[in-house]
Amino acid sequence: MNSRGGAHRTRQRPAPVRFVVSVLATLAFPVLARAHLVNSGLGPFYDGVTHLALSPDELLGIVGLALLAGLGGAAFGRMALFTLPLAWLAGGLLGMTGRITVNLPTATGLALIVIGTLVALDRQVPFAIRPVIVGGFGLVEGLQNGAVAATGALPAGGLLGIAATAFVLVALVAAGAVAIGKQPPWTRIVARVAGSWIAAIGLLMTGWALR
């Protein structure tokens, strides 16, 4: 979608309104589920593992969430450890029905902005918001993976591989972040810088999707 003005435009809306409209329109615009054609040769489970390993946008989101959860404390980390893979699986199953589609680049970009900014700010996330952020990201990414699975490009069993890989990644990164949180301040800064990078990449992804 190109948000630049066209020659036929008769009434120019204010820039912020145009921006919000273009974001919403892009999110609602169902794009073809472009499959990540990964065939590991080791079966559906490892096809899913390989798919995630070759999807830097999804990896960045998982790492960002794990950092956020780990910096928020062990309880937040434990919640994310189970919520993210379960939400991912639920989204995958929902996506396989083909009833809901999302524009993944824009949705993932916006998610990275939110997650990265929260990590960069290093503020405690309210307790009630935590499962919404973690579950929301898992659900959106799972929806897209499910849509891919529905086309047959990714075996349905691959969803299990993706969820299992997400579980392992969250466990490793969140555990590291919990340890970082107990160290001198400068180590926490490293995580905050990583968060600002993730948010910046999300912003660029969104701009890329909207141009």
């Binding site: 948000s3 968060g195 990078w197 910046a200 660029l204």
Partner: peptide, 23 residues
């Protein structure tokens, strides 16, 4: 020394975003 490297990529990405969407 900590806050500048945290802030710079974010603000720079805003500039890049403006460039990407044609502003």
């Amino acid at each position: 020394v900590w806050s500048l490297p945290v802030a710079f990529p974010l603000v720079m990405a805003i500039g890049a975003f403006l460039g990407l969407v044609g502003m």
